[in-house]
Design a protein around this nucleic acid. Structure first.
Lengths: 225, 225
DNA sequence: GTCTATACTTGGATAGAC
DNA sequence: GTCTATCCAAGTATAGAC
């Protein structure tokens, strides 16, 4: 077999890659957060899902909370990279809304956002967890802001709306819709919302025409102030 | 003193009113949910805050979860009644946004919405809790829907936007903003959002003029479809 | 690196005295 | 109704064998 003595000796964390168990624990922690929430994400529950011993949680991560943060890191990195490729071709608000709707459905199915919700809620229960979670949520807001700015390039809306505030609203809506949808299992209202958002994006775009193509619409209606 | 023998005999739960301890436990449960989240809301923590024995939680409510649901009921009834009086004079979207901004600041200061967030998040951890919480969140959505409908009476927007979807969005935004604000303690972005919402409400109102006064604006722009 | 075993703590819940 | 005392289950974390 290819697994000679020297090869197996190199295979420790940090050189070739993380150990299988470490990875399994992170995945199991993610799944446990999705299914059982923060209060249900104990070392025993996670290790049981990972098919290994409970003590390994502390060997690999030092504490349960550290493992949960590692899981949050993994989900964050995974999704943000995915979002980045998804919005790479977007250059209008209505396109952005369409992409966001598709991504939101993905996240809802896979339960990625419920990991964020669980960790944010859990931050209230565990001393010192708040700032750690906040640091890991910030990139989501930053990404949303960037996406909004890119989609609004050359639009009169870009001067009317501070992109940072819109980004906060988008992430807040994302988290809130996840909570409500998760609560009663009915995703219809959430999906309907994206439909309306799409119509509104088209409406706003029509108020000055396709500015990116004819280049005539520089200013919006005065009422927008 | 007015507290004669017969009067004190009537003073048991359900006739004159709930016992002091019962009320104290509900209040303490609310405070504990705000401060420690769902995972930190144990019988001991709550009883400690209420200044009574831990066993009384089970005597009065049967289980910790039942007490938490009673606390959610109390917060819900309290706030929804308050909201009702706050929006009683509203008859335009921009007025509604103004009232909502004021209410949101109140809720943020008092931490009422964090009780909802904690219970929704906790519903993932406790079997059977989900539907109970969902039943208690539904009135919030229903109230929001009603408020939106009232504010849009005679506006062309009322036919363009299904009020139920807007209500879900408003509640989701409410929950999400609470989470994000609670996380890093900075309420500035949330408050800025209400400012922008106000401008947009005014913008939409201006698109057909004050329809409730001249009665001419029945239809909106075709782009609204 | 992984397992077993164990110490320690906290939490839900009940029994019984007052 | 309230308290003390207690049982039992579950959780975190560590020690030590393999």
């Amino acid at each position: 077999m290819a697994k000679s003595g020297t090869v197996s000796k190199i295979r420790h964390q940090g050189v070739v890659g993380p150990s299988d168990t470490r990875r399994a624990l992170i995945d199991a922690a993610t799944e446990t957060l999705k299914a059982e929430g923060f209060a249900g994400a104990s070392a025993r529950a996670i290790a049981g899902r990972a098919g290994c011993n409970q003590g390994l949680v502390f060997y690999h991560f030092g504490s349960v909370v550290n493992l949960l943060l590692a899981a949050l890191d993994a989900v964050s990195a995974d999704r943000l990279e995915h979002y980045g490729t998804a919005v790479s071709g977007v250059d209008s608000p209505s396109e952005l809304v369409e992409v966001a709707a598709a991504i939101f459905q993905e996240d809802l199915d896979a339960g990625y956002v419920s990991v964020l919700v669980a960790m944010i809620a859990g931050a209230s229960s565990t001393p010192g967890l708040g700032p750690e979670v906040a640091d890991r949520i910030a990139p989501w807001i930053q990404f949303a802001q960037q996406a909004v700015e890119v989609s609004l390039v050359d639009s009169w809306l870009s001067s009317a709306i501070p992109s940072q505030d819109v980004a906060v609203a988008v992430v807040a809506l994302y988290l809130g819709l996840e909570m409500l949808t998760h609560l009663d299992g009915d995703r219809a209202p959430a999906l309907a919302l994206f439909e309306h958002a799409n119509r509104f994006a088209a409406l706003f775009a029509s108020m000055t025409g396709p500015t990116t193509k004819d280049g005539s619409g520089e200013t919006g209606p005065e009422e927008a102030r």
